[in-house]
Nucleic acid binder design. Structure first.
Lengths: 319, 319
DNA sequence: ATAGACTGATTAAACGATTAATCAAATAGT
DNA sequence: ACTATTTGATTAATCGTTTAATCAGTCTAT
């Protein structure tokens, strides 16, 4: 591995000058800069990360702490964070707690030991992030008061309901999976708020009781709002087994806009959380914190949008 | 941040002794070791990664280069690699080329610049990894001669076909998506090899022509072997729309054992690539290479297994 | 012509940890 | 009792880069 010393020796100049030429700081003649750059390229010089980090106190690496990369949505996060970090000149070290709750603290400590400049943390459900001795940003749910950036799950739920109201639906089934999940509860709260006093609905939790879709349809239900694409998929396949057609008999909405949403027939209409924006704001915040900027961006809330596909249809034929 | 110097001063001893006490090297009295350890803990000492890396030449970080973390299967990889790396004391820096082919080389260079000790590379389809100046392992397909570790896609295909032969099926549809994918071709080659001379089959590529499942079923086809869970899902939903029941009329096999395999009704029987084992072997190899062990483990091939679920059934009722 | 300003480069210290070389004191061996 | 050996600790160098302080010239202005 070539270092600045070797370049300096070859050109008969000092190491400091080489460093200055390479970084563009200090005072160096145009002539020398050119020579240094040429030799650096020719000798395949790559600045040593450790040496630089030791002197500057910055590694240029941030840690991303997530509960489970295996779970859909998190890869999207990882990608978004990685992309945003890249833009700001950071690399991303992943810390995956792998579904083990007690692992989160350990993961965080490991990342700190590895010298990260800061952390982006998506906390395990129901955990609290205590103060750390590195800057960090928390991506969480609105119910967590310590968040830095959150996705607006409630608004997503509202959007889900509103979109179906707009095209004529009036009788709904709302389907969650796990009634202890804050995310799911926020989404459903949004749906309920939107439908209240305007339409009729019933809420089910799949983990406890999967609704009898045929019976519901007989009673006039025309749309099922779910809290995830996986659930929506299950609704479609189950109802199809019962002889119900989607979207003719039943419009079904998903959430999260996973890759499978476009792989299924009918393709899934889904609420899309803007992970790219979420990631961008998190990195923006973290970068400011790392650089000790006085003015940190305030906590921000990112709204969701909707992607209409084949699994939903307007309620006109029924009239 | 506390460093060894501060501990040394507080105890009135030299920095070298502190270092020796902490690392267990050199000669230090039990008494002093105890004191140093106690103070280190009390002062919340964390060894500085940069300082250590600079001196030892090792960062303890490896880079994982993947084409697209958004695509199913890759998160499983990321998790497997992270877990295995953790076991060997490494952290994982992710490098996601984000589907941009020309990004791969850039990603690799960035990781090298960040001082990784080695790389695990899952190459973009059809790319070649030229020699690098860090140790690396390549996880690829069997057709790529430079691989270090590969999943045995062909055997997976064979397993898929054999499992259905075993339970009485004799007339098959084999369904791929993209006829240019080496992975898919290997899987299908395995299926074909197993069925040749023993059963009848027809191969379709969904991107070109999706089979008429109703017609196929009329002609006696009872099982559809696909190269991915997404395709299997599509087969199930499409056939359901045609009035075919799964698995009563049609057994459907997926591939990769994605999360959605258990979210769908019927749940999907799927071929599962052993990503944990794949990851373990890759890290094992890379660690040996990094430590410049003379005997590198030979390239290895990891077999797949099958997970039976609701989408397949024995062909007994038909007799 | 001379003081002052500017230019281009060098010196040397520093970051934090590791480690070979060294040294003093204590212990063991004959 | 005197030499070896062992033990416990220190010194000083080193990894590669950055950067404040310094210095020797050159140029400008009066």
């Amino acid at each position: 591995m070539t270092n600045q010393k070797q370049i300096a020796q070859k050109l008969g100049i000092s190491i400091a000058t080489v460093s200055n030429a390479l970084t563009g700081k200090g005072r160096v003649s145009a002539n020398v800069i050119e020579q240094v750059l040429a030799h650096a390229k020719q000798m395949a010089y790559v600045p040593d990360a450790a040496g630089r980090a030791l002197k500057t106190g910055r590694t240029g690496i941030i840690g991303l702490v997530i509960p489970d990369i295996t779970q859909p949505v998190f890869p999207d996060f990882a990608e978004g964070i990685e992309a945003a970090a890249d833009e700001y000149g950071y690399g991303v070290l992943i810390g995956n707690s792998r579904r083990m709750k007690d692992n989160q603290a350990k993961t965080i400590n490991q990342l700190i030991q590895r010298g990260v400049d800061g952390l982006i943390i998506v906390p395990q459900r129901g955990t609290k992030i205590q103060a750390l001795n590195v800057p960090f940003a928390v991506i969480s749910t609105a119910t967590d008061p310590s968040f830095t950036v959150v996705a607006n799950h409630k608004q997503g739920g509202q959007l889900s309901a509103k979109s179906m109201l707009d095209i004529g639906h009036r009788k709904f089934v709302i389907l969650g999976d796990d009634c202890h999940s804050p995310v799911e509860n926020e989404r459903i709260a949004g749906m309920v708020e939107e439908l209240e006093n305007v339409a009729s609905y019933e809420v089910f939790w799949a983990q406890d009781e999967f609704p009898d879709l045929l019976a519901q349809h007989k009673q006039g239900v025309t749309a099922v709002l779910t809290v995830s694409d996986l659930l929506a998929l299950r609704v479609i396949t189950e109802s199809s087994n019962l002889g119900l057609r989607c979207p003719k008999d039943l419009s079904v909405l998903g959430f999260d806009n996973l890759p499978l949403a476009t792989a299924v027939r009918p393709t899934l209409t889904s609420i899309v959380p803007n992970t790219a924006e979420l990631s961008k704001r998190s990195i923006e915040y973290l970068d400011a914190a790392i650089r000790r900027n006085v003015q940190l961006p305030p906590p921000s809330i990112v709204n969701m949008s909707i992607e209409f596909r084949e699994s939903t249809a307007a309620l006109t034929a029924k009239i």
